[in-house]
Simulated scan of single mutants.
Amino acid sequence: MTEPLRLSKRMSELGLCSRREADEWIARGWVRVDGVVVSELGSKVFPHQRVSVERQAAAEQSKRVTILINKPVGYVSGQAEDGYQPAIALVTAANRWAEDHAPQQFHPTQLRSLVAAGRLDIDSVGLLVLTQDGRVAKQLIGEDTSVEKEYLVRVSYNKPGKLPDSDLRRLNHGLSLDGKALKPAKVRWQNDDQLSFILREGKKRQIRRMCELVGLKVLGLKRVRIGGVKLGDLPTGQWRYLSADEQF
């Protein structure tokens, strides 16, 4: 017999929203199971039962914004730490890119529940996603995410000569971190001192640690793409909205 699941977990599995959003919608009476309103948190459902949400939920979700920042060095992705400012501090009306043609008007209420969907180290730069939309967060940082992230990485080799082809192959597939094999990556030379990395996972300081294992020192790291969304010409320290026709 199939075991029942928490309604919030089932809603997340169905791609309706995040678990946190699901609990909020359940508490507001916006969720129906087989046509009956369920408003008790912690309620369980069977996989075959039909889950639907009221129009108010979809309307509220459509107002939630996703913001792209070109993060400079010296800012942390999430909560402030050790005196360093979080990237969300850059999201002001003055810092919005002049060439952002999205129809949204900036309002400070958009900063509520705006969370980083993935990390970018304090000494790394480039594309960082902040979102109020639980669906976007789940897509980018959920356990089963397969969204590609592309980085340009300037390196120096700390041994005589050039990095052997065998070590370049190990960067593509064959390294382990924290006792666990890494998923296959796509790593190739862009020029004499710059590599392109395309990853489908994001362990802490992963690229720097991968490079250390083959004798490379990272001098600079920039994220230029997440899935189908590119950093493009967005200036350092500025931000724009994710447009309606962009998909990760």
Rank of each mutant, 00 (worst) to 15 (best):
V31N: 03
P235M: 15
V45K: 11
S243R: 14
P72K: 00
D121C: 02
G202I: 03
R169I: 12
V37E: 14
K162N: 13
Y241N: 03
E246T: 08
N70S: 08
E21F: 01
A185H: 04
G15A: 07
P47A: 00
V65L: 03
P184V: 07
A94N: 13
H48A: 13
G42N: 11
V187S: 09
S113P: 02
Q79C: 00
F248Y: 14
Q104R: 00
R112D: 15
P160I: 06
Y151L: 09
G29Q: 07
D192V: 08
A80S: 04
I141P: 02
H173F: 08
V153S: 10
A116I: 00
W30F: 05
V147Q: 09
L5R: 14
S52A: 14
G29H: 12
K222I: 10
V53D: 15
G15D: 10
R188M: 11
L177F: 02
G227L: 08
E212T: 06
D100A: 05
P184S: 04
S166W: 10
D178N: 00
K71I: 03
P235C: 14
V214R: 07
L14H: 13
D245R: 09
E201H: 03
L168K: 11
D245H: 13
K63E: 15
G29K: 07
K230G: 11
P108R: 11
P164Q: 10
I207T: 11
A94T: 14
L111T: 03
G126Y: 12
G29D: 06
G126K: 07
Q105N: 08
S43K: 11
